[in-house]
Design a binder for these strands. Structure first.
Lengths: 134, 134
DNA sequence: CGGCATCCAATCGGATACTG
DNA sequence: CAGTATCCGATTGGATGCCG
């Protein structure tokens, strides 16, 4: 089977996509991957860069990425200790399609916002009228 | 700014990507989108097609997609009632980058599985030894 | 500095029952 | 058929404190 076909995703294939997206679709993974493009960064650097992430979640996110073979973890036992994270080749290859999705989001977010606004407006219009004429 | 640049995602841009991925990265959204490529489908058709989804979650998923302007909902007030869902143009344009991500997942899942296996092996090897020589 | 353990609140999602 | 409403368990993620 050729994944470049127009309808290549049968049930099993979709499951995998869904699974991948569940993994990278969590709250922080994408942000970390984006920060790691081009340069390796140490833990505290990432913590400062992501803005809002807790230490716990950064650790968990990096552990998962490491487990998936998407980042490498390099410990330098100095004082104070230093740990650097870097995208693997696999990680970099994933960054490309993520980037594509990012470009799409960037390009269409106004339309999405508009659609949401319209939808919510109708929502409120439907629930508000207590006597038919609000 | 050109989103096709090599480093186009600043903090704000990344947030949007993350937000988009959080939306489509839930348990069912991608599967529904994939099923809707090419043909519109009615509710029970989707329910049968997704396999494992509850009625509740299918409804919620479709509502969110509708709110984002990615699918249209068409009610035919017959008996029994009939509701068809169809990807909008915006929805179809999103299907493309998702497909790219799917292709990536399909292409690299063996390497990810291998990386996970290796990682878990080392994990167990590190936690097992109760007296140094298990 | 980097990270683990614990506790806890919020959200997610499945099962079930009921409605137009 | 296509939902809505409710209940409840599972998962997520933040805050905090301790450790090497």
């Amino acid at each position: 089977m050729d994944v470049t076909d127009h309808q290549p995703m049968h049930s099993a294939g979709c499951m995998r996509v869904s699974k991948l997206l569940s993994r990278i679709g969590d709250k922080w993974t994408v942000l970390v991957i984006m920060l790691l493009r081009g340069q390796s960064r140490r833990f505290s650097d990432l913590k400062r860069g992501v803005d809002g992430i807790s230490q716990r979640m950064l650790t968990l996110t990096l552990r998962n990425l490491e487990r998936d073979g998407l980042v490498t973890r390099t410990v330098t036992p100095s004082i104070p200790p230093r740990v650097d994270y870097e995208l693997t080749e696999l990680g970099h290859s994933l960054a490309a399609p993520i980037q594509a999705l990012g470009a799409w989001a960037f390009e269409h977010m106004d339309r999405i916002d508009a659609a949401q606004a319209t939808y919510d407006e109708k929502e409120n219009a439907a629930s508000s009228p207590r006597s038919g004429i609000p």
